[in-house]
Amino acid sequence: MKRVGLIGLGDMGIGMAKNLLKNGFELTGFDLREERLRELAQLGGKPSASSREVAETSDVVFIMVLNGQQVKEVVLGENGLCQHLKPGSTIIVTATIHPSEVKELVQPLSEAGINLMDTPVSGGKSGADNGTLTMMVAAKEEIFKDNKTILEAVGDKIFHVSEEIGIGQTVKAALQAYIGTTFAAIFESLVLGVKAGVKAETLFEVFGSSGVSSPLFKNCANLIMERKFKGTGSHIGTMYKDLGISMNMAKENGVAMFTASAAYELFRSGISLFPDEDNWSIVKLLEQIAGTEVSYEPLEA
């Protein structure tokens, strides 16, 4: 069985670590936060002090950090994976970054004899915790097949979207445009209905039974009505970053993004007001403008 490394033990990474260990993989992990390293040790994984240590004890390494600059530092930096992984090893980039950023890794890794899998994921913290992530894999067919068992430890919907590195991130950027605009529509429609006199519970029941019902809607609307805006595993900064990638890709390809650009501006306003909260906090901005609140009505005494 291959030895696995994981760099980035945030909400997503620690959930992936749990499932890799559950499936019997020997796991070494690294994060800048000591508390996350302690959590990994409690799960049965081996904490390390650097990316270099992960490289020296792993055959396959997942990278689940926040942005492209961090990915490049992990791979190409002084203590990076490119210098310290043995030839024939594989790097799986599950972080969401710009397609051009993952493409920058191709040549140096190829020269070092290291395989690369461009594999962003969707499903959020619950998907990471439950091992049910959707994975968009761009990699050579033989590399994909050789590592599929490892992917199956953390995901249950695994799509081999291309052999061309960058296509995985391209699919994810298009998906995030869809998700971001969906969030904006949910926020606005709930505020509209409540302001016009409809109970939030009624809107939830009707919307949730209609053609637009989805786990995304039900989770989002329920958290809004429960007024849970922190610690739900979907930080507003992550979605804002992802929508920025989508908008940059649209500009590069000459694609008009009317609704996605509006969603991006809404998230920009939201992150200014609620920088430490989760995606659903944006509804509070719309509530302030409308003078209403989307919440469960208290039970009568």
Rank of each mutant, 00 (worst) to 15 (best):
D118E: 08
G208I: 11
T181E: 12
G124V: 01
S210H: 08
H160F: 02
G155N: 08
V154K: 05
K172Q: 02
V206T: 10
K218M: 12
E163W: 03
G180N: 12
F183E: 14
L175I: 10
M136V: 00
L216M: 10
V198L: 15
I158R: 09
F144L: 02
A138Q: 05
E205V: 06
A185R: 04
M225Y: 13
G131A: 04
G127L: 07
N147K: 00
E142M: 07
A153R: 04
M135T: 02
G131F: 02
G166K: 11
S214M: 03
S110I: 06
F229Y: 15
V194C: 05
Q169Y: 05
A196S: 15
G155L: 09
D118S: 10
K230D: 07
K199Q: 13
L109V: 06
D129C: 11
E164A: 15
F187I: 02
T132Y: 04
S234W: 08
V121F: 07
G113L: 06
F187H: 06
T132G: 03
E142R: 12
L133P: 05
E152T: 07
G197F: 01
S122L: 09
L203R: 04
S209E: 14
M239S: 09
K148E: 14
E188G: 00
V161T: 01
T202I: 11
A153L: 01
K199N: 14
N147F: 00
A200V: 03
S122R: 06
G231M: 11
M117A: 13
I158K: 10
S110F: 05
M135P: 05
V212H: 00
P120I: 03
F183Q: 15
G233T: 12
A153C: 10
I143K: 05
N147E: 06
Q169K: 03
G166D: 11
K230E: 15
E141P: 04
T182N: 12
E163M: 02
V212Q: 01
E141S: 11
T132S: 09
G233D: 06
P120D: 01
I158A: 06
T119A: 13
E142L: 09
L203I: 12
G168F: 01
S162A: 14
G197V: 03
I236E: 01
M135L: 14
P215K: 08
F229T: 01
A128M: 00
D118R: 10
I150S: 03
I143R: 00
C220L: 14
D118A: 07
G168L: 05
V171E: 01
A174I: 15
G233L: 10
D129K: 08
A173E: 00
V121D: 04
K148C: 09
T232I: 15
M136I: 00
A128K: 00
V198M: 12
D118T: 10
A177P: 10
G131Y: 03
L190G: 07
G180S: 13
I150Q: 02
N222L: 11
E141K: 14
S126L: 05
P108F: 09
G237Y: 07
T181D: 10
S214H: 07
L203F: 15
S209Q: 14
S162W: 03
Y178C: 14
V194H: 06
V191L: 08
H235M: 08
K172Y: 02
L190V: 08
K172S: 02
